[in-house]
Amino acid sequence: MATLNINKKNYNIDADPDTPLLWVLRDIIGLVGTKYGCGVAQCGACVVHLNGEAVRSCVTKLSRAEGKKVVTIEGLSETNSHPLQKAWLELDVSQCGYCQAGQIMSAAVLLKENKNPTNEDIDDAMAGNICRCGTYLRIREAIQLAAKDQKK
Protein backbone atom coordinates (compact mmCIF):
# COMPACT_ATOMS: atom_id res chain seq x y z
CA MET A 1 0.00 0.00 0.00
CA ALA A 2 1.46 3.34 -1.08
CA THR A 3 0.27 6.76 -0.04
CA LEU A 4 0.24 9.38 -2.75
CA ASN A 5 -0.41 13.09 -2.40
CA ILE A 6 -2.16 14.18 -5.55
CA ASN A 7 -3.48 17.68 -5.99
CA LYS A 8 -3.21 18.19 -2.20
CA LYS A 9 -5.24 15.10 -1.44
CA ASN A 10 -3.94 11.82 -0.02
CA TYR A 11 -4.73 8.51 -1.67
CA ASN A 12 -3.92 5.01 -0.49
CA ILE A 13 -2.98 2.98 -3.51
CA ASP A 14 -2.93 -0.77 -3.59
CA ALA A 15 -0.88 -1.53 -6.69
CA ASP A 16 2.45 -2.95 -7.78
CA PRO A 17 5.15 -0.37 -6.91
CA ASP A 18 6.38 -0.60 -10.50
CA THR A 19 3.05 0.60 -11.90
CA PRO A 20 3.57 3.82 -13.84
CA LEU A 21 2.05 6.86 -12.16
CA LEU A 22 0.10 7.47 -15.40
CA TRP A 23 -1.96 4.31 -14.94
CA VAL A 24 -2.36 4.89 -11.22
CA LEU A 25 -3.86 8.27 -12.03
CA ARG A 26 -6.02 7.12 -14.90
CA ASP A 27 -7.14 3.61 -14.04
CA ILE A 28 -7.03 3.55 -10.25
CA ILE A 29 -7.78 7.08 -9.09
CA GLY A 30 -9.79 8.14 -12.13
CA LEU A 31 -7.97 11.37 -12.92
CA VAL A 32 -7.97 11.13 -16.71
CA GLY A 33 -6.68 14.60 -17.61
CA THR A 34 -3.18 13.10 -17.80
CA LYS A 35 -3.01 11.33 -21.16
CA TYR A 36 -1.51 8.17 -22.53
CA GLY A 37 0.22 9.00 -25.81
CA CYS A 38 3.28 6.84 -26.36
CA GLY A 39 4.15 5.13 -23.10
CA VAL A 40 7.87 5.61 -23.69
CA ALA A 41 8.53 9.21 -22.63
CA GLN A 42 8.55 10.57 -26.18
CA CYS A 43 5.39 12.63 -26.56
CA GLY A 44 4.77 14.48 -23.29
CA ALA A 45 1.00 13.90 -23.18
CA CYS A 46 1.42 12.44 -19.68
CA VAL A 47 3.46 15.22 -18.03
CA VAL A 48 2.65 15.89 -14.36
CA HIS A 49 4.54 17.70 -11.62
CA LEU A 50 6.46 15.74 -9.02
CA ASN A 51 7.58 18.07 -6.25
CA GLY A 52 7.34 20.89 -8.77
CA GLU A 53 9.32 19.18 -11.50
CA ALA A 54 7.85 18.11 -14.83
CA VAL A 55 7.99 14.33 -15.16
CA ARG A 56 6.57 11.90 -17.67
CA SER A 57 4.12 9.87 -15.66
CA CYS A 58 4.20 6.98 -18.17
CA VAL A 59 7.73 6.11 -17.03
CA THR A 60 7.50 7.32 -13.43
CA LYS A 61 6.96 4.40 -11.12
CA LEU A 62 4.46 4.55 -8.30
CA SER A 63 7.31 3.90 -5.86
CA ARG A 64 9.11 7.05 -7.06
CA ALA A 65 6.04 9.20 -6.54
CA GLU A 66 5.42 7.96 -3.03
CA GLY A 67 5.82 10.68 -0.43
CA LYS A 68 6.13 13.38 -3.06
CA LYS A 69 3.64 16.00 -4.12
CA VAL A 70 1.98 15.16 -7.39
CA VAL A 71 0.12 17.83 -9.33
CA THR A 72 -1.91 16.95 -12.40
CA ILE A 73 -3.76 19.20 -14.83
CA GLU A 74 -6.85 18.82 -12.63
CA GLY A 75 -4.91 20.37 -9.76
CA LEU A 76 -3.04 23.10 -11.61
CA SER A 77 -5.60 25.63 -10.44
CA GLU A 78 -8.95 25.46 -8.74
CA THR A 79 -10.86 27.63 -11.16
CA ASN A 80 -8.87 27.31 -14.38
CA SER A 81 -7.20 30.54 -13.39
CA HIS A 82 -3.56 29.60 -13.95
CA PRO A 83 -2.08 32.18 -16.36
CA LEU A 84 -1.38 29.39 -18.85
CA GLN A 85 -4.95 28.11 -18.76
CA LYS A 86 -6.23 31.63 -19.27
CA ALA A 87 -3.80 32.23 -22.13
CA TRP A 88 -4.74 28.90 -23.73
CA LEU A 89 -8.39 29.98 -23.75
CA GLU A 90 -7.63 33.53 -24.82
CA LEU A 91 -5.72 32.33 -27.88
CA ASP A 92 -8.00 29.31 -28.48
CA VAL A 93 -4.93 27.11 -28.78
CA SER A 94 -6.47 23.65 -28.89
CA GLN A 95 -7.47 21.64 -31.89
CA CYS A 96 -8.09 18.01 -30.93
CA GLY A 97 -6.88 18.91 -27.45
CA TYR A 98 -5.40 15.55 -26.52
CA CYS A 99 -1.85 16.78 -25.94
CA GLN A 100 -2.74 20.11 -24.38
CA ALA A 101 -2.78 19.07 -20.72
CA GLY A 102 0.77 17.80 -21.09
CA GLN A 103 1.78 20.95 -22.95
CA ILE A 104 0.38 23.14 -20.19
CA MET A 105 2.05 21.10 -17.44
CA SER A 106 5.44 21.36 -19.17
CA ALA A 107 4.97 25.08 -19.75
CA ALA A 108 3.97 25.63 -16.12
CA VAL A 109 7.35 24.42 -14.89
CA LEU A 110 9.12 26.60 -17.46
CA LEU A 111 7.22 29.69 -16.30
CA LYS A 112 7.87 28.95 -12.65
CA GLU A 113 11.59 28.78 -13.27
CA ASN A 114 11.88 31.42 -15.96
CA LYS A 115 9.72 34.52 -15.82
CA ASN A 116 10.84 35.81 -19.23
CA PRO A 117 11.26 32.82 -21.51
CA THR A 118 12.77 33.51 -24.93
CA ASN A 119 11.83 31.54 -28.03
CA GLU A 120 14.91 29.41 -27.43
CA ASP A 121 13.86 28.72 -23.83
CA ILE A 122 10.43 27.68 -25.04
CA ASP A 123 11.92 25.43 -27.71
CA ASP A 124 14.02 23.72 -25.06
CA ALA A 125 11.33 23.39 -22.43
CA MET A 126 8.70 22.15 -24.86
CA ALA A 127 10.95 19.84 -26.89
CA GLY A 128 9.41 16.76 -25.31
CA ASN A 129 5.80 17.60 -26.12
CA ILE A 130 4.32 16.54 -29.44
CA CYS A 131 1.20 18.14 -30.91
CA ARG A 132 0.03 16.19 -33.97
CA CYS A 133 -2.44 18.94 -34.90
CA GLY A 134 0.47 21.37 -35.11
CA THR A 135 -0.71 24.02 -32.66
CA TYR A 136 2.87 24.92 -31.69
CA LEU A 137 2.58 28.54 -32.83
CA ARG A 138 -0.30 29.21 -30.51
CA ILE A 139 1.28 27.25 -27.68
CA ARG A 140 4.36 29.46 -27.99
CA GLU A 141 2.25 32.59 -28.09
CA ALA A 142 0.18 31.45 -25.12
CA ILE A 143 3.30 30.80 -23.05
CA GLN A 144 4.51 34.31 -23.83
CA LEU A 145 1.10 35.77 -23.02
CA ALA A 146 0.99 33.89 -19.72
CA ALA A 147 4.49 35.10 -18.87
CA LYS A 148 3.30 38.69 -19.30
CA ASP A 149 0.16 38.01 -17.28
CA GLN A 150 2.22 36.42 -14.51
CA LYS A 151 4.26 39.58 -14.09
CA LYS A 152 1.21 41.76 -13.50
Binding site: V32, L76, N80, Q85
Partner: peptide, 29 residues
Protein backbone atom coordinates in the same frame (compact mmCIF):
# COMPACT_ATOMS: atom_id res chain seq x y z
CA UNK B 1 -17.25 36.18 -36.28
CA UNK B 2 -14.63 34.31 -34.24
CA UNK B 3 -16.06 32.11 -31.50
CA UNK B 4 -13.99 30.13 -29.04
CA UNK B 5 -13.89 26.34 -28.96
CA UNK B 6 -16.93 25.25 -26.91
CA UNK B 7 -14.87 22.54 -25.23
CA UNK B 8 -11.82 24.74 -24.66
CA UNK B 9 -12.25 24.94 -20.90
CA UNK B 10 -12.76 21.20 -20.53
CA UNK B 11 -9.59 20.59 -22.53
CA UNK B 12 -7.37 22.85 -20.44
CA UNK B 13 -8.74 21.52 -17.15
CA UNK B 14 -8.40 17.81 -17.95
CA UNK B 15 -12.07 16.85 -18.00
CA UNK B 16 -12.98 13.44 -19.44
CA UNK B 17 -13.63 14.00 -23.12
CA UNK B 18 -11.89 11.30 -25.10
CA UNK B 19 -12.58 7.65 -25.75
CA UNK B 20 -9.72 6.60 -23.50
CA UNK B 21 -11.30 8.63 -20.69
CA UNK B 22 -14.65 6.86 -20.89
CA UNK B 23 -15.65 4.78 -17.86
CA UNK B 24 -18.40 2.24 -17.35
CA UNK B 25 -19.32 0.15 -14.33
CA UNK B 26 -17.58 -3.19 -14.42
CA UNK B 27 -15.57 -2.27 -17.49
CA UNK B 28 -12.66 -4.56 -18.36
CA UNK B 29 -9.64 -3.63 -20.45
Amino acid sequence: TSKKNVEGTKIISGKPLFGLDYKYDGMLI
